[in-house]
Simulated scan of single mutants.
Amino acid sequence: MAERDWLIVEAETVEEVMGAEALYDGPARREWAERFLASPGHHLLLARATDAEGPVGMASGVQMTHPDKGTEMMLYELCVAESHRRRGIGRGLVDALGQLARAHGCYGMWVPVDADNEAALATYRSAGGRTEELCQVPVWDFAPAEEPSGA
């Protein structure tokens, strides 16, 4: 595959979101895909390659606004299919999300990443990201809630 024999597009339909399921951590649900697309500030970028049927990479981002900080982009998730790694697609997705963030008036972008995920850290560094001091991430696991009717 020649360099840059791929392009990045923003998902606009539920079918596009569902079609990237192989790149997610688990199965996609149609109602969640619909909600994602309907939520302002939620973005899903897809990398498409000429030698593949479906998307070969994805990056999701969520714009967050705080009263004393303004709006920033959180790079929520990044994945490139094993068959298409080391071709610049991951960096291209990060760069494209950064451009999208700037276009939406975000003052910056950040991503939580496991400290031992060297591949991800290398990708983010190559796209101009810098690592700030290490932090701990407390998490809360809640039992799955029933979707409210009309949601």
Rank of each mutant, 00 (worst) to 15 (best):
A115R: 14
S60R: 07
Y107K: 05
A11M: 08
E77V: 02
L46Q: 03
E72N: 00
T65K: 13
R4C: 03
P27R: 15
A38K: 11
E132N: 06
I89P: 01
C135S: 12
H66D: 09
G90T: 08
A145M: 12
N117I: 04
G105V: 08
V62S: 05
A38P: 01
G57D: 02
P55R: 07
S126G: 11
G88D: 08
H104F: 09
E118F: 04
V111L: 11
A115C: 05
I89L: 05
T50K: 05
L45T: 00
G88R: 07
P27H: 13
G61M: 00
A52K: 03
T13L: 14
A115Q: 06
V62I: 11
W110C: 02
A33G: 11
A96V: 06
D95T: 14
P148A: 14
L97V: 03
Y24K: 02
V62H: 13
R91L: 12
A38T: 01
F36L: 09
E10M: 01
P138H: 14
M73E: 09
A11R: 02
H84P: 03
S83L: 01
D95K: 08
Y24D: 00
D51Y: 04
A52E: 08
L46V: 00
H42D: 02
P27K: 15
C106A: 13
D51K: 02
A20F: 05
P144G: 10
A96G: 01
W140F: 11
L97K: 01
E82M: 02
E3G: 05
A38E: 10
E118S: 04
P144Q: 13
E12C: 01
A120R: 12
